[in-house]
C-alpha cells in the first residue's frame, strides 16, 4: 500500500548508489539489493561502457534516477537539450520517479558543478516551482526535490529553509526527497533545530529519503559522503520515518568508497528503524 500520493513506492525498501568501484562485484556476484540509485548525468552519454553496464544492471535490478545538474533553482530557464537527454535516459531506465536538488549551479551556460544554496524568498520559490513543473511535464515522470546541505545563508531570505522547501513543492505539486544528513549538516552550520525542519515539511509529499555520512571541521560541517552514517543522523532518520512512514531509503557513499558489502551493510541498518516503528504501531 502506498503511504500517500507522493510515496507510491513505499515497498521499495533500502537502496544504495550505483558506483564504479562496485560494478565488477555487482555484475559478477549479483548480490540481493532492493534497488540502485544512479546518477543520471553519468549515463546521459551517447554510447560506450556506461550504457552497457546500465543495461546489465537493469536486467537484474530496479533502478531509480537521481540527478545533480538540473538546477531547478537557477534563475535561467531549464536547458531543453539537457531535458531531452534526460528524457532519453528516463525511457531507457523506466525510473518510477526521478529526483534532483533544490539548488542552483549554473548561470548563462557556465557550470559550477556544485549544489549551491537558494535565497529563501517567495520570488525564488515561484521561479523554482515553475522550473520543476516544466521538467515534470516534459519528462512525464514524478519528481522529488532534495534539500541540499549548505554553508552560506543569504540576507535576502524571507523564511526558513523548510518553509521554502514546503513553498516550492506545494507550488510545483511535486514530491520531496528528504536528505536527513543534509538537514543535520545545515542545522549545525546555521544553528537551527533539525527536528523543527522535519516536523514542518509536508510529510505526505516525501517520496524518498537519503542518508549519508559527513565530515566535521572546526567551524563547519561538510557533506562529504565518505563515512558511515553518524549517530545524530540515524536519530533524525528514525524521527523522519515516524513522521512519513515506510519510505524508499537510500544510502549515499561517494568518496573513499569501501567494499560493496560494507556500503550495503551500512544501508541496511535503516531497516532497524523501520521495523521498530512498525512493531510499535502493530
Amino acid at each position: 500500500m502506498p503511504a500517500n500520493s507522493f510515496n507510491n513506492f513505499t515497498e521499495y525498501g533500502i537502496g544504495i548508489g550505483l558506483r564504479v568501484p562496485h560494478y565488477r562485484h555487482i555484475l559478477a556476484e549479483k548480490p540481493v539489493v532492493d534497488w540502485f540509485e544512479i546518477i543520471s548525468e553519468n549515463f546521459m552519454v551517447d554510447g560506450g561502457r556506461p550504457l552497457e553496464v546500465l543495461d546489465k544492471i537493469m536486467e537484474q535490478y530496479r533502478v531509480v534516477q537521481h540527478g545533480v545538474a538540473m538546477y531547478f533553482g537557477s534563475a535561467d530557464r531549464l536547458n531543453r537539450e539537457h531535458l531531452k537527454k534526460l528524457k532519453r535516459l528516463v525511457k531507457r531506465t523506466k525510473t518510477p520517479w526521478l529526483s534532483d536538488h533544490l539548488c542552483w549551479g549554473s548561470v548563462d551556460g557556465r557550470y559550477t558543478h556544485d549544489l549551491l544554496p537558494m535565497p529563501y524568498t517567495f520570488a525564488a520559490a515561484k521561479a523554482t516551482a515553475a522550473n520543476i513543473r516544466e521538467a515534470q511535464d516534459f519528462l512525464e515522470v514524478p519528481i522529488c526535490v532534495e534539500n541540499v546541505s549548505s554553508y552560506a545563508e543569504f540576507h535576502a531570505s524571507e523564511m526558513t529553509e523548510w518553509e521554502f522547501l514546503s513553498e516550492v513543492v506545494e507550488r510545483a505539486d511535486c514530491g520531496i526527497l528528504l536528505d536527513v544528513n543534509n538537514i543535520y549538516v545545515s542545522s549545525q552550520n546555521h544553528n537551527f533545530d533539525p527536528y523543527a525542519y522535519l516536523n514542518n515539511v509536508p510529510h505526505d509529499r516525501v517520496g524518498q529519503i537519503h542518508i549519508a555520512g559527513h565530515s566535521k571541521f572546526e567551524k563547519y560541517i561538510l557533506d562529504t559522503h565518505d563515512h558511515p552514517v553518524l549517530d545524530p543522523v540515524w536519530k533524525l532518520y528514525a524521527h523522519a520515518v515516524k513522521l512519513v512512514g515506510r519510505t524508499a531509503t537510500l544510502l549515499e557513499w561517494d568518496d573513499s568508497i569501501p567494499s560493496f558489502e560494507e556500503v550495503h551493510h551500512e544501508a541496511l541498518k535503516a531497516n532497524q528503524f523501520i521495523e521498530k516503528l512498525e512493531n510499535a504501531t502493530a
Binding site: 564504479v20 546518477i39 545533480v68 559522503h225 549515499e252 568518496d255 568508497i257
Partner: peptide, 11 residues
C-alpha cells in the same frame, strides 16, 4: 585513481 561521482564537496 578512481574519480568520485556525486559527492557535494572536496576537501
Amino acid at each position: 585513481v578512481l574519480r568520485s561521482e556525486a559527492s557535494n564537496t572536496f576537501e
